[in-house]
């Protein structure tokens, strides 16, 4: 594989809620900051991947609006996932493997404070058998806590508003842009079955496979940032990834949480706070889908 690194990361201020801006307005400064940090402009970007969610925006084509923050003129090579921004980073990493493009931008945005998230996330469930039950994320969290013998949580972390951007670069271009590129030593994502009744909720098989494929256990990890909403999710993830410690989510800006955890892990390497870090993103009920990235100095 080609050597690809995260060279810049910029999140919005943590814990924002009730913002008056649009997602595009939240994105514009973080994209500017991610580029300014390494002294490049939008013209230097060869591939862009964005991530957003129509059900948070309350309108179709949320990504059409956020495209404005990239200044897509002349036309750019751009793709979009309706997933957490960590998967946009993954697609950018795949794209940079080809050798024709050296710099890529990945970003995501989500404004949770304008929606009833319990209702929104119920619409993510199987439409025929689960969605009609209006199972909300806290109920799933309590179910999974019981499965690992932990005290069921009474509250989910606050759903907040955020945007974040990362810049990825390949090979020598990464070395030119920053002293300590956060080299992506491994990155992988996997899903489990959707139905809570057909999997062992006390474990995360998908996180285990993703961690193994990303090579988490190949060397000691200095710091890990996990998309764990509750203490029991942290335990399940650390068990799956073979970690002894990790930081979970203080707040949960949907669509951005995972990109922030992965970007923060990369930033620890860039800043010299860690030589080897792990970032993790998750989606779906009871940690159904998991992405793991390993960064090395």
């Amino acid at each position: 594989m080609r050597d690809v690194a995260v060279v810049s990361f910029a999140p919005s201020e943590p814990g924002l809620t009730g913002v008056e801006e649009t997602e595009t307005q939240l994105l514009f400064p973080v994209i500017n900051e991610a580029l300014a940090k390494i002294g490049i402009t939008r013209k230097d970007i060869g591939f862009t991947c964005s991530a957003s969610c129509d059900y948070l925006a309350g309108a179709p084509f949320a990504f059409v609006q956020t495209l404005e923050a990239t200044g897509a003129w002349p036309p750019i090579s751009e793709s979009h996932v309706e997933m957490d921004g960590a998967w946009a980073l993954y697609e950018a990493w795949v794209r940079l493997q080809h050798g024709d493009v050296d710099v890529a931008l990945a970003f995501s945005s989500g404004i949770c404070s304008r929606a009833d998230i319990r209702e929104v996330l119920s619409i993510q469930l199987d439409p025929y058998y689960l969605a009609p039950l209006w199972l909300d994320p806290l109920s799933f969290g309590r179910l999974q806590a019981e499965a690992v013998g932990q005290e069921p949580p009474t509250q989910a972390p606050a759903y907040t508003d955020a945007a974040a951007a990362v810049v990825l670069a390949a090979g020598d271009r990464a070395r030119e842009l920053v002293d300590r590129p956060a080299w992506i030593a491994g990155i992988d994502h996997r899903t489990d079955a959707h139905y809570p009744g057909v999997r062992d909720l006390s474990k995360s098989e998908s996180a285990r496979i993703a961690g193994q494929q990303a090579g988490v256990d190949k060397a000691p990890v200095d710091v890990a940032y996990l998309s764990a909403q509750y203490p029991h999710e942290g335990l399940i993830l650390m068990d799956a990834l073979g970690l002894t410690h990790g930081y979970g989510l203080a707040t949960n800006p949907l669509m951005v949480s995972g990109l922030i955890q992965v970007g923060t892990a990369a930033d620890a390497v860039i800043k010299g706070d860690a030589n080897r870090s792990v970032g993790h993103a998750s989606a779906g009920p009871c940690l159904q889908q998991n992405l793991v990235a390993v960064f090395e100095a």
Partner: peptide
């Protein structure tokens, strides 16, 4: 997603598409 009223349907479709233990993405 508002066309069918299901948010991020890859979450639900993972089972039917044989994805347990595999990667699935949604564009």
């Amino acid at each position: 997603d508002p066309f069918e009223g299901i948010m991020m349907p890859e979450i639900y479709l993972a089972d039917a598409l044989g994805c347990a233990g595999k990667p699935i993405m949604r564009v």
